[in-house]
Write a protein that binds this DNA or RNA. Structure first.
Lengths: 109, 109
DNA sequence: CTATATCTTCTACAAAGCAGAACAAATCGG
DNA sequence: CCGATTTGTTCTGCTTTGTAGAAGATATAG
C-alpha cells in the first residue's frame, strides 16, 4: 500500500491531535481548529475525519472514563500512530518544499 | 460567497504556478510538483485541478503561441488571481498556525 | 424523573482527487 | 506530401474527502 495522501482537513486534524496530546478528543479537536484557524467545522465533519483516519491506521483511539461534570460522559481519546506521523510529515514537507522561496510577503510557511 | 477552501492538491498547484511564473502551464506544473515533492500525478489530475481552480476564479488562463519544436503546440498559461492569492495565503496560514510549535524534529513547515 | 449539557454516531450529499484513454496540433524524416 | 512521433489538453468515470444536520447516548443538576 502506497503511503497515504492526506487531505487538507486530515492534516489539520492530525496537527490538532498532536497539539492536544492527552486531551485530544472530538470536541477539543474541533475547538482547537476553530480557535487557531477560525474555521468553524461541524462536529460531523470532525468526527468523520477522525473515523477515517483511524480506519487508515493513522490514528488510534482509546475510551476514557466519565468525568464528574455536567454531561461529562466518556471521551474517545486519539493519538497519532507511527504511520500517521510519517504521513503528516510527508504532507507538510511537500507543502513546505513547494512554498519555500516564494516571495516572503506571501506568508510563506 | 465564503472565501473558498483549498484542497491539498489545489494548494500544490497554486504554489507550482507561483514558482513557474510565465512558464506555468499544465505539463510544467505537473513536473514541478513531481520534482519537488516526488508525487507523480497523472496529467488528468493536474488538469482537472487547474480547470476547477479557474472555475472558482482562483487562476486565470491565456493561450500562448505554438513554439518551433517537435510537437510544440499552443500552451495554456496560468496565473494566480487576487482571490487565488488570498485563498492560498489563508490555507498556508492555517496549516502554519496549526503546525507552529510542534516538535521541530517533525518537519514543521 | 425530566431537563439540560457533553460527546459521539448516522445519513446523505457535494467537492476534490485520480487515472487512462481519447483527442488535437505541431515537427521530423523519408 | 504523409505517416510516425512528440507535446499538450480534454473527456469520462470512478474513489476519496469534506461537509452538515439530525439523531442517539450518557452524564449531572435540580
Amino acid at each position: 500500500m502506497p503511503p497515504a495522501n492526506l487531505g487538507e482537513l486530515e492534516q489539520l486534524v492530525l496537527l490538532a491531535i498532536a497539539r492536544l496530546g492527552e486531551d485530544a478528543y472530538g470536541v477539543a479537536v474541533r475547538k482547537q481548529i476553530a480557535t487557531r484557524t477560525r474555521r468553524e467545522l461541524s462536529f460531523g465533519s470532525v468526527y468523520t475525519a477522525l473515523t477515517r483516519l483511524e480506519a487508515k491506521g493513522l490514528v488510534a483511539s482509546r475510551l476514557g472514563e466519565p468525568t464528574a461534570e455536567r454531561g461529562g460522559r466518556r471521551k474517545k481519546h486519539y493519538t497519532i500512530s507511527a504511520a500517521g506521523r510519517r504521513a503528516l510529515q510527508r504532507s507538510l514537507n511537500a507543502i513546505r518544499t513547494m512554498a519555500r522561496g516564494i516571495d516572503a510577503s506571501w506568508g510563506t510557511p
